[in-house]
Every structure is written in structure tokens, then in C-alpha cells.
Design a protein around this nucleic acid. Sequence first.
DNA 1: ACACCATGGTGTATTTATAACACAATACTA
DNA 2: TAGTATTGTGTTATAAATACACCATGGTGT
Lengths: 253, 253
Amino acid sequence: MFTKQELKEFCDNARLNFVDHISIDCVIFGFHEGQLKVLVLKMKDEDAWYLPGGFVLKKEPIDTAANRILKDRTGLDKIFLQQFHVFGDPDRSRPHNEMYRGMIAPEENWFSHRFLTIGYYALVDFVHANPTPDSHSEVCAWRDLGDLPKLELDHGHILKTALDTLRLQLNYQPIGYNLMPKEFTMPELQKLYETILDQKLDRRNFQRRILAFGILNRLDTPRKGGAHKAPYLYSFDLDNYQKALNEGLKGGW
Amino acid sequence: MFTKQELKEFCDNARLNFVDHISIDCVIFGFHEGQLKVLVLKMKDEDAWYLPGGFVLKKEPIDTAANRILKDRTGLDKIFLQQFHVFGDPDRSRPHNEMYRGMIAPEENWFSHRFLTIGYYALVDFVHANPTPDSHSEVCAWRDLGDLPKLELDHGHILKTALDTLRLQLNYQPIGYNLMPKEFTMPELQKLYETILDQKLDRRNFQRRILAFGILNRLDTPRKGGAHKAPYLYSFDLDNYQKALNEGLKGGW
DNA sequence: ACACCATGGTGTATTTATAACACAATACTA
DNA sequence: TAGTATTGTGTTATAAATACACCATGGTGT
């Protein structure tokens, strides 16, 4: 929540620099300790949770804007980031539109009218991300997919749509490079797939299948120190991974 | 191309009624005589071809806007219509932005600034569509996919993206209900798939596969009067078709 | 020291889907 | 009435997905 002075400054700046009527919301996925996580923000002085979002600069490509938002919230750059849907219900941002009514003249109020929002989803490396609140918010944190706060506006719907898209994407694109650490074991990668799909997969069939894609390199040194048999470590073969991204995989899970 | 007077009227009206910065462009597919067709418009007094498009009314959901545009151009309603991408390069509409420069003050000129466009694609029944030009255009016509005029702006790119999306969609959604007449033969349906995918399919395997989806009803009366063996007629089983749309099909072509 | 056990690696049948291919039926044409 | 283009209906071979079993390793507890 802004003070009147902050609001005026924000609105003046926004009107000057951003494309009107358009926002971007990002569903930023991470993976840690066998859990799929999403980055969410909490507004200052309010128990209101949001997806990270922002606006498009007047001369900025929308993909660049999404990247900028992602970088501002996580410090990460050159990430898997993909537009997946535009949400354009005229009432979707109504609570926001009315939030500052009376504090500022409607024609000066950046929030006074409808916003279409472009949904992007990102897959990022959990351990290297550095969650950072924006000027509206006091908390920027990872939350388990199964333990999300209620999200404001249509952000719950946006999140669900992103997840559906990710699950579909899994059928014809390799994922994992952006979500896993550089080196990982086969069971760890399997856990990622199981978490995204929300279903158990057969260990042996998973391994056969993922290896058949030809996007993994097995490293010589198994992981030591574990409490059990030392698993092999793998890394992604970036050349083949990129090729698979472009050409698409076959079949579905 | 507008006269100054027309331009002023158009712009005044647009500013009053439409959401700024946003447009919608539709890739409308039809199927006729074994050819996949796309609806294109030609501008008045210029050899400039475009995809059908329009703007979003201030209180209108974007899907409704796309439907309205589709109905204005074809007379058809309740059609398969799907958002597939937003095109948001800051320079994508530059030629349009500059087109009327000098004829009208920039702050009054609806076209003076960047537009993001939301791409929709539609599958419609060729024989029932009634192509109708809009106020900018003098021609609204079907063109074969292989015989398209050069399209202005990024409309060529938009069309290509729509086609890629349609081909991908084919893997996990039934299509055809909106493109085929009510009753059709198996070879006719196969031709549709072959045209979209731009590849030959095996007659027998195609039939087995499409029947396995359980979305077709075979009618009792074969098509009579043909020059050869009378083929069976089929129609879509709407209940199962809808179910398949919601649940998705398995596998890929 | 040793059995125990949780975990990871590898292999092999079975089932299912995909691909390749051949022949019979029909309705017109010459 | 043979010829021909087209449609209908298989059958077989190959590949992929699935289900399932056994061995290896490196700790644990006694």
C-alpha cells in the first residue's frame, strides 16, 4: 500500500515510462529438496500475496521486460522463460483499479483502469536465485506448490495455467537444465519429473527413456559420502539439449 | 488508406471505445477442395495484404473481442478460436505508426504508437463462411496456404506461428469438427490431416488411429453417385469430441 | 564381523502401439 | 465385360512403452 505521495510519484513515473494497459506476471518455478517451488511476493502492510510482475517499458520488447522482471526478483539472467498466455478479462484487475480510488485523480492514477497481463513462466536454479522484494512488497519468497498462500486477483488462475503448460511442455521439450544443479543423480532428476507431473514414475523406465533422449552425460565420479550406494552423477549435454529444445522430443509421459 | 477526415473520425472513435496499445490479429483457417485456406484482407487503394484484426472494446474480454472480429469477417459464431501468442516487439507496428504521421496530431493519432497484438487462430467451416472486408479493406478472401500474398508488418510471422501451433495441437487435440462439413468420408478427413501436416499418411493406419479416438460415428448410408466404390460417411460424435478436447489425446503423428 | 536394509544400477519378458504391406469389393468407363 | 480408380479390411513386422526381478554398494545396529 502506497502513501499518497509515493502513489503520485509511482504513477507519474509509470505513465512516463511504461506501456499503458499492459502488465507482465511471472510464474517462477524452482526445485529444491524434492519440492517444486514458486516465487511469491507479499505486499507491504497487507496479507496479500502476488506473483512477481511488472510493466513494459515504452520501447522494450515484451520478452525483455519479462527478463528484466525476473532478474529484478531473482538476480538471474539468461533463464528459460516463456510466454504462455494473456489474461484479458476486463474485471481481472478490478480490486487493483479501485484500490487507490480517491487518493489520486483517475486520469493520473496508473491503476485506475483495466490491465491485460501477459503470463510468463520461468524455470530457475533454486540455489542461485536471490529472491528480492520490489517496491510494493516486503517479502519475496519461495513457497512449495502444495503450500501456497491464497493469491490476489487472478494470480491463482495464472499459476494453474502455467503449471498446466509446463506439464504439457514436458511432452515435447527437455526441461531440467534450468531447474537442476550442474551435476545431479538420476533419482534426483526423476524426482523433478515426478514432482512436476505429480505422479510416480518407474525408476528403470525413466532412466532408459531420459538417456534415450541423448541429452545427458554421465560423469566418471559417482557421488561419494551418501548413506547408500554411490549414485552416478550426470550433467546435461548442452549441445544436444539445445538441439532437443529446437526440434522437440517425441512421445508423452 | 484513410482521408484526413476519415482518419480523424476513426481515431476519435477508437480512442473513445478501444483499449489502447492492444490489437488482435486472427489467423482464420478453412479447408476446401483439399486445400488449407487462410482468410486475408487487402487494403483499399494499396497492394497491401493483412490478417483480419481489430481492437478490444474497453469493457470487453479479449476472447469476446476475437470472436467479434471473427464474426465480422466471416459471419460465423461459436467457432474454435484460440489465443496462441502475443507479439510484442516495439518495432512490429512501426510502418503503421508512421503511416499517418503529419495528417493528424500525434496525440490524436490512434496509430501513432506501438501496438502489442494478441494472435488468435480459428478453424472455420469454409462453405458457411462469408468473407466480408472491414472499413480499411476492399478485399476479404480465402487464399491457399501455398499461394499467399506477402503480408504486411509481422503478419507473415504471425501466420507461421499459428500454423506451427496448429500442427502441435494436432498431437493432443482432435480437430476437424470445425473444418469439415457435417458428413464426410474417411479419405476427406485424412486429406485434412495431410494438408495441415504437409505429409502423406497411410490410409489404413490413419483410419485405425482416428477411429480409436472414438470421436467418429459411421453413418448407415454410404455416399452415392461417386465415380468409384461408395465410401462410408462419418460424422463427429460431439459428446466424445468434447471429452477428447478437454482430456486431450495420446501420442503424436 | 556380520546380517540387515535402504538405495542405486542393470536386464529381461510382456504388452501395446506404430509402421509397412496386400488383397478383395465397388461403381463407373471404355 | 474387362479395365481402372477408389474404398474397405485385414495381417505381419518392428519399435516403443510397461511391468517386473535381481544384483551391488555402503552404511546401520548388534
